[in-house]
């Protein structure tokens, strides 16, 4: 058992998967000699050579599109997009090719591939190094979407993503890459796609979050506990598919829910979950679902910290549903 940061856990997991299955190859910008700009592919080139650790031209369309063809031909590519913000030049390949290959061919061709990308704000990156574009992916049928928030999950979910038979978008909150260390088992464990984690048991209200905002959600839970409020906390981990059982089980119990994430509020994944809660549990709710999300502005630079859902904002929302 090693104590690792999230980014270290990712690098180790990639090495383990490449060791386990020679079909696994890594491609992206600077993933070779440099080991990735965040060092998520550190050491892979020396260990596996340039045929399996491919420094690509600076073209997200080429990276994702080539990954589709590699996957269709039998490899298990793991593509790195240097920042989630740079997915857009490759978005067509995701939406047109990766997401629809299985469907449009009637299951004859598939694209089992992973697209990893650092996402989210809080690192003073301005609007082109801070976005959380998961809603774009979630809105595109055929893609699976996960967002990790701990080193342990990063390993287990990355393994599950690499072994999955569909394209998986793997979002890594860059703010959490080195924020904490955690004991990460050496063994070959999987965290299944589609399962939320209960981070804290509670009875008075449910806080649902994922990714970049999880530290604030957990802090809000601590504050509420100090005030005598028992909050149950769910870390979604997977957005497509999202864990409807865990969500409805918890919210049916507490009758109150606050949903938190840093992505913009309009057309967000949180909105979909809130709507589903309202549809399914309306008569058991003690208050309407409330969202604490990013603002619907492009991600700002100077107000980096203000943009992200703060503990205060989460507590205010909690107060609102508790006093409703």
């Amino acid at each position: 058992m090693a104590t690792l940061t999230m980014v270290q856990a990712i690098a180790r997991t990639l090495a383990e998967e490449m060791e386990r299955d020679e079909r696994v190859v890594v491609l992206g910008e600077d993933v070779g000699r440099r080991g990735g700009v965040f060092l998520a592919t550190e050491g892979l080139l020396d260990r596996f050579g340039p045929e399996r650790v491919i420094d690509t031209p600076l073209s997200e369309a080429a990276i994702i599109g080539a990954a589709v063809g590699m996957a269709a031909h039998g490899l298990r590519p793991v593509a790195e997009i240097q920042f989630a913000d740079y997915i857009f030049p490759g978005f067509d390949q995701l939406a047109t090719q990766a997401a629809k290959l299985r469907y449009r061919s009637g299951g004859q061709f598939t694209a089992p591939m992973v697209v990893r990308m650092p996402s989210g704000g809080g690192v003073r990156g301005g609007h082109h190094h801070s976005q959380s574009p998961e809603a774009h992916f979630a809105h595109t049928a055929g893609l699976k979407v996960v967002v990790v928030s701990t080193p342990y999950d990063a390993k287990g979910l990355l393994k599950a993503a690499i072994r999955d038979d569909d394209p998986v978008l793997f979002l890594e909150p860059k703010r959490l890459y080195r924020a904490t260390r955690e004991e990460v088992p050496d063994d070959d464990y999987l965290v299944p796609i589609g399962k939320a984690a209960v981070r804290r048991q509670g009875t008075d209200l449910t806080l649902i979050g994922y990714g970049t905002s999880m530290p604030e959600v957990l802090k809000a839970g601590d504050e509420l506990a100090k005030a005598g409020v028992s909050a149950e906390i769910l870390d979604l981990r997977s957005l497509v598919p999202w864990d409807i059982e865990a969500v409805t089980r918890s919210v049916a119990k507490t009758g109150r829910v606050v949903l938190v994430a840093d992505a913009p509020r309009l057309s967000s994944v949180l909105g979909e979950i809130a709507a589903t809660i309202a549809e399914e549990l309306f008569d058991q709710m003690l208050a309407p679902p409330v969202r604490v999300a990013g603002f619907d502005t492009p991600y700002p630079y100077a107000q980096d910290k203000l943009y992200l859902p703060t503990v205060t904002r989460i507590l205010n929302a909690a107060k609102h549903v508790l006093e409703y």
Binding site: G65, G69, D92, Q97, R104, S105, Q108
Partner: peptide, 29 residues
């Protein structure tokens, strides 16, 4: 929109040029 797994004919997509990067990827494989 031609397609045939048996004959290795990748399922065509309407989006002009979108099948060219996958062709490079398959060739890389």
């Amino acid at each position: 929109h031609p397609n045939s797994r048996v004959l290795n004919i990748f399922a065509a997509a309407s989006t002009v040029a979108s099948h060219i990067p996958p062709a490079t990827g398959a060739a890389l494989s």
